[in-house]
């Protein structure tokens, strides 16, 4: 299993996260469409980590489960957290003038999506896309 933790401290880091995720997706031989879905989801969450979380990290891992292989992305920040996760996941809900597609859109682009957050405790979001 390969692990890589990347800092998200500037908007250019979002580009670096996209590149690392693309490489991991290629490593597990995701199709081009599936690579694009995963990289797009990563871009949405990485931007949230930077803009709303005040920066954080993204850990990119190649994971296996029985016979299947996939990519797991863990985004962590020490920002203000999300007080109402259900509301934040509602399509069209936005706290920052966006389209409100970031979280719920990213969720639709992956197979597993976990979010842990409390006000003042930061946010941890885990995404998995299996081959």
């Amino acid at each position: 299993m390969k692990t890589e933790a990347l800092a998200i401290a500037a908007d250019s880091d979002v580009v670096l996260v996209r590149k690392a995720v693309r490489l991991a997706a290629i490593e597990v031989r995701l199709s081009l469409v599936d690579q694009t879905k995963l990289v797009t989801a990563a871009s949405e969450i990485a931007r949230n980590t930077f803009v709303y979380g005040g920066g954080g990290t993204c850990t990119v891992e190649v994971v296996t489960d029985g016979g299947r292989v996939g990519v797991r992305l863990t985004f962590e920040d020490q920002g203000p957290g999300i007080s109402d996760i259900a509301l934040a996941l509602t399509e069209g809900y936005t706290s920052g003038g966006g389209l409100g597609l970031g979280l719920c859109g990213a969720k639709r682009l992956v197979h597993e999506f976990q979010i842990e957050s409390d006000p003042g405790q930061g946010t941890r979001i885990v995404l998995v896309r299996w081959k």
């Binding site: 694009t36 990289v39 949405e44 931007r47 966006g98 389209l99 859109g105």
Partner: peptide, 10 residues
């Protein structure tokens, strides 16, 4: 472009 996310789409 390798992706278009909601930011670039908007």
């Amino acid at each position: 472009l390798e992706i278009v996310d909601s930011f670039i789409g908007r």
